[in-house]
Design a protein around this nucleic acid. Structure first.
Length: 482
RNA sequence: GGCGCGUUGGUCAAGUGGUUAAGACACCGCCCUUUCACGGCGGCUUCAUGGGUCCGAAUCCCAUACGCGUCACCA
């Protein structure tokens, strides 16, 4: 049982889930599941200045929405708790003391404001590295506050293996005597993560590349304790495309950066995770549409890419529209309704019918309001809109067609797609014009735009007889001036 | 700046010494068609640059350039 795969997602509670973070969580989850392992959620809240109320709840809700379900964590518990770092303070203290005991760490009494920066090597100048026991005791007796620092080797190099990048070596003299326990008694990330990953028996650390350069410090810590380090998997960042064509780490100026924002824009969680999974990972096959279960079957580390990927809305749109097509009309209608804005009474009744027309035509729910705005208010338009080369329509031709269609529609007692269609076809068959030629001017007069959700029959039905006749008259009036 | 990592078309990418360098999105064109969409067909554009090694290099080596990361008592 000891070689069961265990991965973890260890966010700090900021109340925000960046796309890149979501992807990290997703990979850690998928890798665990692909290997019948466990996925752990751990909250890294050792920075008290950054604490955001309800952030843990937010993380739980986000993971749930994305169908990433932890096997262990603050809410579900598990054999290795607590899973919130601020509740593990004594544990870190104990291990830090052991390090001091064995000469791998030391108390540093320097004030953070004194500027103890070394000139010849990286970071802290190591003033307190070799204090005599007597001096240390003096400080302790005086009640001086201190931090605990890691005692880095002065020479040599540290090498570790990364499963996506291969072996990485860093000279030890590049390493600072980093702080392990802060003045407030809390551990730093670089310390807590080592202790917790070992104690929680994490086998694979999956995290962003930003941690790659501090990994040697972690490895040294594992060595000091005599522990075997877990496998390391460092993921490249998710980028955004700038106005000038350059790319940089996905941020606000690129639009949405969080899972929650994308959902608010009307993207389906399933589509987001599917797309994000493929941003930096590729399966052995050419399959692109994956359910979570399918991904959990085929996910493998060797499909991860080394280089960063640019977040592309065009591709996300495609994924989302594919997921829309898989939805039933009823489910879509229900889920889309909140995005429709205020509906006329007519449309409220006919919403399921309208929604079915919208489903194959939009990329995200957020596009709905714009698409259906013309139902409520006919946009201003000019007679030029009536021109369409493809269907051989001109404003003149339109001027002849509109009144005739009005006449054909007017007598209809029953206003259903069927009766409307029959009346329309009756007219078209009689007049000798092509269907497209007749439909074009109708669409323009009905909607004031070239592109509409649904065909003319559907528009007529949805608008209702009275409004249709009015809009057709309006079209005739506009055409009268040419 | 030091150190580390990266670089296949507009974007995601397959590829691990011999391929016509897959596939997807986007874009363009055609077909279908009651517009749009859907669907079908086709096209466009790529191995950052320069040196090696080799019969042969996107694949191996070395430089250069560019990009990203890191250098906190943040994670």
């Amino acid at each position: 049982m000891s070689n069961k795969v265990r991965t973890r997602f260890a966010p700090s509670p900021t109340g925000y889930m960046h796309i890149g973070n979501l992807r990290t969580a997703l990979y850690a989850y998928l890798f665990a599941k692909a290997n019948d392992g466990d996925f752990i959620l751990r909250i890294e809240d050792t920075d008290r200045n950054r604490y955001v109320p309800d952030a843990v709840d937010f993380i739980n809700r986000t993971l749930a929405a994305a169908h990433i379900v932890p096997d262990e964590g603050p809410e579900i518990g598990g054999a290795f708790g607590p899973y919130v770092q601020s509740q593990r303070q004594e544990i870190y203290q104990k291990y830090a003391d052991a390090l001091i005991e064995n000469g791998f760490a030391y108390r540093c009494f320097c004030s953070p404001d004194e500027g103890h920066t070394a000139a010849s090597f990286s970071g802290y100048d190591r003033t307190c590295r070799d204090l005599s026991p007597a001096v240390i005791q003096q400080h302790l007796d005086a009640g001086d506050s201190f931090v605990i620092r890691q005692k880095m080797p002065l020479n040599g190099a540290t090498t570790f293996h990364d499963m996506v990048h291969g072996n990485i070596t860093i000279q030890n003299d590049e390493l600072e005597d980093q702080v392990l326990i802060k003045r407030d008694g809390m551990p730093t990330y670089n310390f807590a993560n080592v202790i917790d990953d070992h104690l929680m028996q994490v086998t694979h650390i999956i995290r962003g590349v930003e941690f790659i350069t501090s990994t040697p410090k972690h490895v040294l810590l594992y060595q000091s304790f005599g522990w075997d380090p877990p496998a390391f998997v460092h993921l490249p960042p998710v980028m955004g495309k700038n106005e000038d064509g350059s790319v940089s780490k996905l941020s606000k100026r690129h639009g949405a950066t969080s899972f929650a924002e994308l959902v608010a824009m009307g993207y389906l969680p399933e589509a987001i995770t599917n797309y994000v999974a493929l941003l930096g990972w590729s399966p052995k096959s050419n399959q692109e549409l994956f359910s979570m279960d399918e991904m959990a079957k085929v996910f493998a580390l060797d499909g991860l890419s080394k280089s960063s990927a640019v977040f592309d809305y065009a591709k996300l749109n495609w994924f989302n529209s594919e997921y829309f097509k898989q939805m039933s009309d009823a489910d879509f209608a229900q889920a889309a309704l909140p995005f429709a804005g205020e509906l006329t009474d007519e449309l409220q009744v006919k919403w399921p019918y309208l929604a079915a027309l919208l489903k194959p035509r939009i990329n995200r729910y957020g596009e709905i309001a714009d698409q259906i705005a013309f139902f409520r208010t006919l946009p201003e338009y000019s007679s030029e809109l009536f021109s369409n080369k493809r269907n051989k329509v001109t404003p003149e031709v339109s001027a002849a067609i509109l009144p005739a269609v009005c006449a054909a529609l007017e007598p209809l007692a029953d206003w259903t797609p069927d009766t409307i269609n029959t009346a329309l076809h009756g007219y078209i068959d009689g007049c000798g014009l092509k269907m497209g030629t007749v439909m074009w001017p109708l669409r323009i007069a009905l909607s004031g735009q070239k592109v509409t959700p649904g065909g003319v029959t559907e528009l007529l039905y949805l608008l209702g007889k009275e409004i249709c006749l009015k809009r057709l008259q309006k079209g005739i009036a506009i055409l009268a001036n040419i």
